[in-house]
């Protein structure tokens, strides 16, 4: 029976807010009933209740991240994003595509993420270093000022220039970081859609 199938889907949809979950189930219940599908046809079209629940969850988190990217508190988005990445990775291992391929894709995702984090760490250490160096030189310049005015002013100037450079470039670096991260997220969503959603017709965004 359709109802039993849907009850099982519902039981596997933890992590999605109850109202969103019920709205999804209402929608697909109507699709199944109005199309007059038998349970076998439903399984053929949507997969087992567990698979279907997973597809719905991935789609929910992709969709809610699309909303969040436009307007949402950063904290909430991070939580959803973590959930989305986790679901996509888990989903890949459980998906009908071959396990070796899943491993390749997951390792790929992890590598991209690791490289991304390392670049990020490098950039930010560079910023902190430059800032500290700038301050140090400025203080050094003040110290030397009484003995050698020229040298003192030179170091003070250098310190100010370095600090100014940091202030100038930090927003730029931040913007580039954010853009790179968005690209990574878009890539993940594409993976999720490509490999996890059954019978999904892609739609161009925007």
């Amino acid at each position: 029976m359709v109802n039993e199938y849907l009850a099982e889907v519902k039981a596997n949809m933890s992590g999605i807010p109850a109202d969103e979950r019920d709205e999804l189930l209402q929608f697909y219940e109507e699709q199944m009933m109005d199309a007059g599908l038998t349970t076998d046809e439903i399984v053929a079209k949507y997969g087992s209740p567990k698979q279907f629940a997973r597809t719905l969850k991935v789609e929910y988190f992709i969709e809610s991240d699309n909303d969040a990217a436009q307007d949402a508190p950063a904290g909430k988005r991070t939580k959803n994003l973590t959930m989305m990445i986790l679901l996509i990775v888990l989903g890949l291992f459980a998906s009908p595509i071959l396990i070796p391929l899943a491993i390749v894709v997951v390792v790929g995702i992890m590598s991209v993420l690791a490289i991304f984090l390392m670049i990020l760490a490098g950039i930010y250490m560079g910023i902190v270093g430059a800032l500290a160096g700038g301050l140090f030189m400025f203080v050094l310049g003040i110290g030397v000022l009484t003995q050698a005015v020229g040298t003192g002013i030179f170091y003070m100037g250098l310190g100010i220039a370095l600090t100014a450079a940091v202030i100038f470039f930090t927003p730029l670096v931040w913007a580039v970081t954010k853009a790179l991260f968005e690209m990574f997220v878009t890539f993940l969503k594409w993976i999720g859609r490509r490999f996890l959603s059954k019978k999904h017709t892609p739609v161009t965004e925007g």
């Binding site: 699709q31 109005d34 789609e59 999904h200």
Partner: peptide, 25 residues
């Protein structure tokens, strides 16, 4: 209702119901 909408979109444009759900939402 939902099925009439998704059916029309499927038949005319080849768009699946899983695409239509977020659109309607």
């Amino acid at each position: 209702y939902g099925y009439i909408i998704t059916k029309a979109m499927q038949d005319l444009l080849g768009v699946s119901e899983s695409t239509m759900y977020p659109v309607l939402r």
